[in-house]
């Protein structure tokens, strides 16, 4: 590595402190140093593993969630065909008809989405906080479940079947290198086929270094209560 003066090193550290960008990293010739290069590869590896990861059955059992699948089948098909992730399989649809309370006030759904790691990292904090918040507002929740390989718009298919007043889907976001564990909560009033994206509300960036999972749980409860009171969601919801 090329060596610079102590003063330059101090100034460089200050510059690096002003941004999460990977600067002041030095070089060997024109290439990055080994540790910097491998750190990038490790962060990417974590992001890739979270896309292809699975949520452990034990965790789902602990949370009291049974599992249904979308038409995606495999993770590869899920990535190639967003449309398939928007529909439950016939078996999945039959299972939620059989197991779930119909026409609940609040339906909670959890999905791995693009990051199983996001579900694993946050669900133990978000979900109980959400249930507490719903209880505090006196809202009745239906039977929660887990959707494997879900896309946000599978809310609409679930809405058609169970006819909830409001539905919240806790789903893993596309992983970045800063964190592979970021979750979003998508919410809608009476989601059905044909619901527009602008009819949904979202709280994104839920992870340990973003929106705190416990706070997010409480905030979701507040938004769902507002939707029920105003009988609408999306851009027209007044908060």
């Amino acid at each position: 590595m090329e060596a610079f003066s102590d003063e330059a090193a101090k100034l460089t550290a200050e510059l690096a402190g002003s941004t999460p960008a990977r600067i002041g990293v030095g070089r060997c010739g024109t290439r990055p140093l080994t540790r910097t290069a491998l750190q990038l590869r490790m962060d990417h590896a974590a992001a890739v593993d979270s896309v292809y990861g699975v949520v452990a059955p034990e965790l789902l059992k602990e949370m009291g969630l049974f599992t249904v699948e979308t038409l995606s089948g495999s993770k590869e098909r899920y990535l190639r065909r967003p449309d398939l992730g928007r529909r439950l399989t016939d078996e999945g649809a039959a299972l939620i008809r059989e197991k779930c309370i119909m026409k609940p006030q609040v339906q909670v759904v959890v999905s791995d989405g693009l990051s199983a790691a996001a579900t694993c990292a946050n669900i133990r904090d978000v979900y109980p906080a959400l249930l507490d918040s719903l209880a505090a507002y006196g809202l009745q929740t239906g039977t929660p479940f887990f959707v494997k390989n879900g896309r946000v718009a599978c809310m609409d298919h679930i809405g058609e079947i169970l006819q909830p007043d409001v539905l919240v889907m806790l789903i893993g976001e596309r992983p970045g290198l800063v964190t592979a564990q970021s979750m979003s909560a998508y919410m809608g009033y009476r989601p059905r086929f044909g619901t527009l994206e602008s009819d949904r509300n979202v709280i994104s960036n839920i992870h340990a270094r973003g929106t705190q999972p416990v706070e997010a749980g409480a905030h979701i409860g507040t938004m769902l209560a507002a939707m029920l009171e105003q009988k609408r969601s999306g851009t027209s919801l007044v908060l």
């Binding site: 941004t19 999460p20 960008a21 990977r22 600067i23 990293v25 070089r27 010739g29 024109t30 290439r31 990055p32 910097t36 990038l40 962060d43 990417h44 596309r174 970045g176 290198l177 800063v178």
Partner: peptide, 22 residues
């Protein structure tokens, strides 16, 4: 050119300052 190819705003990876020089 993005620092170490990692765009901390757009959340994707490109080529780095080092890469262009190389």
């Amino acid at each position: 050119g993005v620092p170490m190819a990692d765009d901390c705003m757009l959340n994707y990876q490109s080529t780095s300052y080092h890469d262009i020089a190389t």
